[in-house]
Design a protein around this nucleic acid. Sequence first.
DNA 1: TTTAATACATTAGAGTCTTATGTATTAGAC
DNA 2: GTCTAATACATAAGACTCTAATGTATTAAA
Lengths: 111, 111
Amino acid sequence: MHSKELLKGTLQMIILKLLADEGKMYGYEITQKVKELSDGQMVLTEGALYPTLHKLEAEGLLITEKVSMGKRIRKYYRLTETGQSSVLKKVDEFTDFISMMSRVLQIKPAL
Amino acid sequence: MHSKELLKGTLQMIILKLLADEGKMYGYEITQKVKELSDGQMVLTEGALYPTLHKLEAEGLLITEKVSMGKRIRKYYRLTETGQSSVLKKVDEFTDFISMMSRVLQIKPAL
DNA sequence: TTTAATACATTAGAGTCTTATGTATTAGAC
DNA sequence: GTCTAATACATAAGACTCTAATGTATTAAA
C-alpha cells in the first residue's frame, strides 16, 4: 500500500490527538501507539516524528519534561492550552476534509 | 480553513475518479467540477492541475484529444485501461486510509 | 471597451515526508 | 558473557507535491 502521500499533513494532528487522549507521551511511545492503533499499517519514522515534535514545541503547542530512566533519558511531551484548542480545531478540519472528499469523489466510505 | 496540507496526495485520485465518472473532461472543466462538488471549498490551482495531468499522461493512465472550439483549443483527457484499474485501487486505498485514520485518532466521523 | 471568465501552461519556492546516518542504553537469546 | 534486537534520542540530504506568481490568448458580458 503506497498511500503514503495521503498521510501528508496528518502527522501533527495525530501527535496532538494522542497527547490529548493520553496526557503525556515520549517520542518512541508515540511511534508504538500509532503502530498499535493502526494494526501495524502506519509506521512513523524518526525523521518525520522528531522534527515535528520540535516544531510543535517551538510553536508553543507542546511543552517538554525530561525524565531520567537510569542512564537513559526520556523526553515527555504534553499539550499546552494553545495545544488543546488546536487539537479540537484540527480534528474538526479533518472530519470536514473527509466529508468534502466523499462528496468530490462521490463515494460513501463505510466506517 | 488551512487544511490544505491534507489535500496533498489526493489530486491524482480526484482527477482519475472524475474522469472515471464523466468519461472525458478538459482541465478547466475539472477545476469547475471540483469547485461545484465541494461547494466552493476546494479550488484546484493550475500550477497543481496541469503538471499532474501531464504526469498522468506520461505514465499512461490518461490519453488526450485536442478539440478546436473556434480559435480556442481544448485538451480532453480520458482514462486508459491502466487508468481505469488505477482508479479502483486508489479509491480503495483512500477508504482504507480513512478507516485507519479513524482508528488512530479514535474518532467516528459522521458522514 | 474593459473586465471577468475561459483555457492552456511554466517556474520558483515552501512544506512535509523518506531514507540514511549517528549515538547510546538495556533486555533477552544463545 | 556476548551479540542482537529493541529502546530512545537526533540530524541532514533529497524527493515529492503543492502554492503563488506569472504568462499568453480567446470570448462573453457589463
